[in-house]
Design a protein around this nucleic acid. Structure first.
Length: 774
DNA sequence: CAGTGAGCGAGCTTCCGCTTGACTT
């Protein structure tokens, strides 16, 4: 038996370290935290110094008992969890739970998984830092108190099963408030003037820096240009440079993978996890931009040998985030000489991104020559401006260019263009000039990744929780990630060409969104409730201010119980008062009066979601209709609401059964004989003819028939179908995958039944547990 | 993917942060 037991948090790390340490060391993993507060209300004894009650959760029992056994046999136990608040607490929990002895236990830390770093750590062990542990306890207790007192208030005042917390509630608030900014935004139109000079390859664009608010002014400008002479008034060339971005942290990786690869934050994390487990990259949950000395050397070597000495420049980056705890390195390839890796396409692409970003971070800056030509118009005092850019040295751009969040279409032209050789005073030949009406844009909706960026800036959440937080707020129904169609908008274009001005009206699609986060009604109602009654908790700076106090605890300047006491007393009082005094929140809003009956029309959240109601008194005949996807209580109008009552509508009869058109969660559909048929896009659900409906039903049946492999005489409900992932059995409401090697064509009814029953008996544990329904 | 929107009441829900697997119609 080995003399030493060394415990780290992650099994992949354990494997690597074991290789460095030789056979005197057994290296094991705790798989993160091994204990947590009990679920019940008595987890924290508020009366007695907030004493906590911990337990080992069921899924950690085995890990703990194995570690316990190994610890007993070992001469020395080395606690090597991460060097941050949570890591220190993990060491402390291990010390307590494994019944370790003070004199046989050593606490060590390292920031990078390299042999010298680990050996150095072993040379200088220390004791558990109880100040740091206390800071973690304060963090844990605060989060539990906030979450488990606030959530029940929502159950009483809004709806059961809702949740609130220090992190998730702020995330929802950001999205709700952004949506409101967008709603109240008024686009301002202005005319943008762009001129094209020269012909063929010599042609280039110039733009007027000023914009015209009125069409007359734009038109006058164009008019003045008809007879004008254009000359280069000034020509200025100056050098410019661009530096590479720091290597990835969790949050920047999520952002870039979202922009460049279209990954959701959880997809990014699970692909990165695979790369980490197969030893391809360093740890993927980190807030550090630091690279180990070994990594710096190895990157330098790669850059010099692949691109040459002039492309290399060693850089050390500093984190900009105040909340960073930097227990790990930045995310980088384990071996820089592996430019690509095996694996599925997602792994390969993410690895490539990580490799390029880390390599580029150690490369020289790119150098440009930027030219600005100002062009005088003889009949006007304004000048047109042409920008040209020539790259003199590509530097890090040879490998990697960071993408950006703003997709400002106004900047597309002009920048990066190459200007033909020009001389001062040169007369230019105008080919064409346009005045295009452009609109100011509302603030952008959050994507998952840009929300993570914002949370990180506010110091809210940690690398390990960004992805789960995004999932939580969606699972609770506070937020939806959606694609929404834009609206058509007209804009005017004036074109000056050949001495004539042509006026046109064009249309563009605006406001279309894909993969953006939208608040739901319940999200908005819960947010408003929390902002009204618990302003302090959902304040954007709440986390920053408690973090400051955690730091003081960690430095031994403050008692953690004092801090919690000071926070808890007024907070708990607010909870009490709110329970006693606050009204139920349903987001109710009056829309006006029903034009025909004169009854009141209102909208609010009900048991089954948001709905419109006509009538209010008990004795009145009331009418109800659910809101549709994309409609919200706060923005729906009386007219929209009236439309809702026009459907469902009977459109005719087919095979002796009614055909009804309605709108559901996934859009308009026809219901016929208890089956659903989606309406193709472009057909107005209010204007579907009987013949059209029949056609849609038959079309769908034809498509289904193509998927069908086999049916059975015994039971028409049972079918074998071709699905996206191969053949499967549709057994009533249950779908069962056909095992590999079985020929779907030759399956009997009895076999199908057995497969279905076997699948029923073996419920998908994890799937059901983690993926909340609805 | 209907329409439903009353009321009773037992028993349940819920936080954040550290990990990995088992799970995908």
């Amino acid at each position: 038996m080995a003399k030493n037991l060394l415990i780290v948090e992650s099994p992949a790390k354990a494997k690597t370290i074991e290789g460095y340490l030789g056979k005197d060391f057994t290296v094991k993993s705790s798989y993160g935290h091994i204990r947590d507060l009990v679920k019940s209300e008595d987890a924290i004894d508020i009366e007695h110094g907030f004493k906590q009650k911990y337990e080992v959760p069921a899924d950690k029992k085995q890990v703990v008992s194995e570690l316990k056994k190994l610890a007993k046999e070992a001469e020395t136990v080395w606690l090597a969890s991460d060097e941050d608040r949570e890591g220190e607490a993990i060491s402390w929990h291990l010390f307590e739970t494994l019944d370790l002895k003070e004199d046989k236990t050593k606490r060590i830390v390292f920031h990078e998984i390299t042999k010298p770093a680990i050996l150095r750590a072993i040379e200088s062990p220390r004791k558990i830092d109880y100040n740091l542990v206390n800071a973690q306890q304060a963090r844990r207790v605060l989060d539990r108190l906030v979450g488990f007192e606030l959530s029940p208030v929502l159950w009483k005042k809004v709806k059961p099963s809702l949740s609130a917390g220090r992190v998730q509630s702020v995330a929802v608030r950001l999205i709700v408030e952004r949506e409101r900014e967008i709603n109240k935004f008024n686009a301002e139109a202005a005319f943008r003037i762009v001129a094209i000079f020269g012909k063929g390859k010599e042609a280039f664009k110039a733009e007027l820096p000023e914009r015209f608010n009125k069409q007359e002014d734009a038109e006058k400008f164009l008019n003045d240009c008809i007879a004008a002479e254009f000359n280069v008034n000034s020509l200025e060339t100056r050098p410019a440079k661009r530096s590479p971005a720091a290597p990835f942290t969790t949050s920047t990786l999520q952002q870039e993978a979202s922009r460049k690869l279209g990954f959701s934050v959880s997809r990014t994390m699970s692909v990165a996890q695979k790369l980490y487990e197969s030893g391809k990259i360093t740890y993927m949950r980190t807030d550090s931009v630091n690279l180990s000395d070994l990594a710096l050397q190895s990157a330098a070597q790669q850059i010099v040998s692949a691109y040459g000495e002039q492309y290399h420049q060693q850089r050390k980056y500093k984190t900009k985030s105040a909340s960073a705890q930097e227990a790990h390195e930045a995310i980088r390839p384990t071996y820089f000489n592996e430019h690509t890796v095996d694996g599925d396409p997602a792994e390969r692409r993410l690895y490539e991104l990580i490799w390029k970003r880390a390599i580029a971070s150690q490369m020289s800056e790119a150098q440009f020559e930027r030219t600005v030509a100002k062009i005088g118009v003889s009949t006007r005092k304004e000048e047109l401006v042409a920008n040209g850019e020539v790259m003199k040295f590509d530097g890090f751009l040879k490998v990697y260019l960071e993408s950006s969040d703003d997709e400002d279409d106004n900047q597309q032209d002009g920048d990066n263009a190459i200007l033909p050789p020009l001389t001062k005073g040169q007369r230019l030949d105008l080919q064409e000039m346009t005045a295009t009406e452009r609109f100011s844009r509302p603030p952008a909706r959050y994507t998952e990744a840009s929300l993570v960026k914002k949370l990180e800036e506010l110091g809210i959440g940690r690398p390990s929780t960004y992805a789960p937080t995004i999932s939580t707020i969606q699972n609770r129904g506070y937020v939806v990630k959606e694609e929404r169609e834009g609206k058509q908008r007209n804009f005017r274009v004036l074109t000056l060409k050949g001495g004539n001005i042509k006026k046109e009206e064009k249309t563009e699609n605006t406001g279309a969104e894909k993969g953006k986060l939208f608040p739901t009604d319940i999200g908005a109602v819960v947010n408003d409730f929390l902002v009204q009654y618990f302003k302090g908790i959902v304040d954007f700076h709440f986390t920053a201010s408690v973090e400051k106090q955690f730091d003081e605890i960690a430095r031994g300047l403050k008692e953690w119980t004092d801090m919690i006491e000071t926070f808890y007393k007024p907070f708990h009082q607010e909870v009490q008062t709110t329970i006693e005094t606050a009204d139920r929140a349903s987001g109710e809003r009056e829309l006006g009066v029903h034009p025909e009956s004169g009854k009141k029309v209102s909208v609010r959240i009900g048991r089954y979601g948001p709905f419109v109601q006509i009538g209010e008194n008990d004795d009145e005949q009331k009418q109800y209709a659910s809101l549709r996807a994309g409609q919200m209580i706060e923005t729906i109008t009386l007219e929209d609401a009236m439309e809702l009552f026009k459907l469902p509508k009977k459109v005719g009869v087919f095979e002796d059964k009614d055909m009804t058109v309605a709108i559901g969660k996934f859009g308009p559909y026809i219901r016929h004989n208890s089956a659903f048929y989606s309406l193709p896009k472009g057909i107005d659900p209010l204007d579907v003819s009987e013949a059209q409906a029949v056609e849609i039903i038959q079309e769908k049946r034809k498509k289904d028939a193509e998927k069908l492999i086999k049916t059975f005489e015994e039971n028409a409900e049972v079918k074998i179908l071709n699905g996206r992932w191969g053949p499967y059995i549709e057994f009533g409401k249950q779908n069962v995958k056909i095992p590999k090697g079985k020929d779907p064509q030759s399956l009997t009814y009895q076999e199908c039944k057995e497969l279905a029953e076997a699948a029923e008996k073996e419920p998908k544990k994890a799937g059901k547990k983690f993926v909340k329904k609805k």
